[in-house]
Design a protein around this nucleic acid. Structure first.
Lengths: 208, 208
DNA sequence: TGTAATTTTGACCAGTTGGTTAAACCAAAC
DNA sequence: GTTTGGTTTAACCAACTGGTCAAAATTACA
């Protein structure tokens, strides 16, 4: 029993890693087995098929995302606090699980339907967030902005550097890993500043 | 000769599409052949192997990205104009070639080395952009911001909605394609506004 | 200790995939 | 009309991949 839990968890850890790097199609069951240090047949003993294994790892990954997003949308904290804590939690989550975005994104192209089922079953709702955005505008706390765009902007600023890590790491820091990690950490404050700064109410109206 | 040009181009178009949707591993030579309406052996007649075909399509795609980025970094226009025209061109490019980002991103995880070779051979340099950012700050035109972060932020805001299209389309517009296209178009102005708004110099100093 | 249940493995299989090849096709040149 | 060159195809193959299975190893339990 103890050994089985270990094997099962070793397989999951290996699957997370290999699926994350190679994608669903690119991943090989043999590579997952090697990474986990066990026989390939054991993969099928614990998880019926490659599909089943992927499904589990994928849903687990997507749930982490969804949980954070839902907190952004539902939390009762003040608008500024919500955004700040979301950015903080989200970037931390991404730093700790760098394979997550590539994972979800890899699925987007080849299997959008399942994603949408998953999203709608999770019931991620934007309405309350959009209402709060327009409330904040009416109170004069922020400039006028579409809640959808703001939502996309926040996610984009958090997720993109993780996705583009290998490129940015090379472009900015000559592949120095620790330098890039530092960059990601400073980003936590930078993204907050960027968002809040952009949301400041206009001084002069009719910018455009 | 006429027919050959047609076949070759049909193959490339099909390869762009299939690789874009399925990724390098997920793509099947048979599917590319079917999509192009020709026999599978013809793929190997014109392009030696799957790898070679992918290489060509990938470099072609990446070049489009790099060209735009280089214009952002090198152009002699004013700072504001550079950013505006970059955002405009970049989002247009992405709308016209929605497969591009997933394509490049798919490669990031499984083959970072080649990407980096490609980038360094292209000689994308950030120095001049970063200098210009700090110049603008010293002139009092923008608030203080690290050029690297600004660069990442701009790209992120442009690219992410295209990558996340299937998710966002479902989340925002119940899978209505044309509604999402409209959203992408309004985004062109929105991203400009978002960036410029965030770059406005601070009124009160010591925000944090 | 002996035995039943669970876990792990090596050997193997069927289907798929990228790739090859020899023959067929087809337009232009003579 | 036939020869010549590139173009296209059907049939085929070797390698790989996910998956199976019976036997071995290990653990749980009496």
């Amino acid at each position: 029993m103890t050994a089985s839990k270990t094997s099962e968890e070793a397989i999951l850890a290996a699957a997370r890693k290999v699926f994350g790097i190679r994608g669903r199609e690119g991943a090989r069951m043999q590579e997952i087995a090697d990474e986990a240090g066990i026989n390939k047949a054991l993969l099928h003993y614990y998880f019926r098929s490659k599909e089943k294994l992927f499904e589990i790892v994928f849903q687990e990954a997507f749930s982490k995302f969804a949980r954070n997003v839902n907190e952004l949308l539902r939390s009762e904290a003040s608008f500024d606090q919500k955004i700040d804590s979301f950015i903080e939690n989200y970037i931390t989550l991404l730093i700790d699980n760098p394979y997550l975005p590539g994972f979800v994104i890899g699925e987007i192209g080849s299997n959008p339907e399942r994603l949408l089922d998953f999203i709608s079953s999770r019931g991620i709702l934007l309405d309350s967030f959009q209402e709060q955005v327009s409330e904040e505008y009416q109170k004069g706390n922020i400039r006028k902005i579409d809640g959808k765009h703001l939502f996309v902007n926040i996610i984009a600023l958090c997720v993109f550097p993780i996705i583009g890590r290998p490129i940015l790491k090379g472009l900015f820091f000559s592949n120095d890993n620790s330098a890039f990690d530092t960059f990601l950490l400073t980003r936590q404050e930078e993204v907050k500043r960027f968002i809040h700064s952009s949301l400041r109410p206009d001084i002069q109206n009719d910018d455009l």
